[in-house]
Design a protein around this nucleic acid. Structure first.
Lengths: 132, 132
DNA sequence: GCTTGACATGGAGTAAACTCCAAGGAGTAG
DNA sequence: CTACTCCTTGGAGTTTACTCCATGTCAAGC
């Protein structure tokens, strides 16, 4: 597959795909004799994985390190696992933060829906002080 | 409360607190006769709210607009509610992305835990192609 | 009265993650 | 052969959200 096709397939720009490869977020992509990228299934799978991780906010640095360990191979399983566990924890923490935020948004929206929002009332009671 | 105390209380630097006020992420904080900020409960509540929203990744732009509408008052309830609903949707989308990512991390970690990770095996089977 | 320390402002600098661009090569259509 | 399009690289530019800094003010302590 050409870079344009992969770009289309995953909704990432060609620039982003080249950028990901350049910084080591994905392993080097195979090239044809003219030096043009020819993405195979493995490359695509890496891209899809990284798209998923990035969409979830996992830091590029951590992912680069994972790929580096992976490419190094021999005896890096423990380190890789530790890295994944660390990222999982961070992810769970962020999700908990988001849940708290979501709860508050829901409360506020509910107040608006109940029509309890004359401006002056809202001003002092729910946002400024008690945070409904 | 002084800026130092509020900084301490919420774990945000004084620079960040001043920055938030400057860009309108929170309404202007009351000052004493020397022009020094004297945070009251309402200011603190705004800060706490914004800390929560920011921790969840809600964009500053949207929050600034919310505060602007809020300060404008009269007849902006619908717009404010729409804004909150929009942010709630984005938050839910991001949480779903994170859940997908979390599921994949859990799968991978489980494989490492089962000791199914001889390098060559892992290389082709789970990461490169099928993405376990 | 002078020093010290916290706070003020405006503006420059930083980090992360892209995003864009200039210059050039390779394959195809006419 | 020429034009065209898509690809290449290296490097500069952009956006978001802070973070740091120079310079200055003011109240309190010695």
């Amino acid at each position: 597959m050409t870079i344009a096709q992969v770009s289309q397939k995953y909704g990432l720009t060609a620039d982003t795909l080249r950028y990901y490869e350049r910084i080591g977020l994905i392993p080097p992509v195979p090239r044809n004799k003219s030096g043009i990228r020819d993405y195979d299934e493995e490359s695509c799978a890496w891209i899809e994985l990284m798209k998923c991780m990035r969409a979830a906010g996992v830091q590029i640095e951590a992912l680069i390190e994972y790929v580096a360990l992976f490419r190094q191979g021999d005896g890096t399983q423990e380190a890789r696992k530790a890295l994944l566990v660390e990222q999982r924890e961070q992810l769970q923490t962020r999700m908990a933060d988001m849940q708290r935020s979501l709860d508050r948004l829901n409360e506020k929206i509910a107040l608006y829906e109940q029509g309890k929002m004359t401006d002056q009332h809202f001003l002092r009671r729910t946002d400024g002080e008690k945070g409904a």
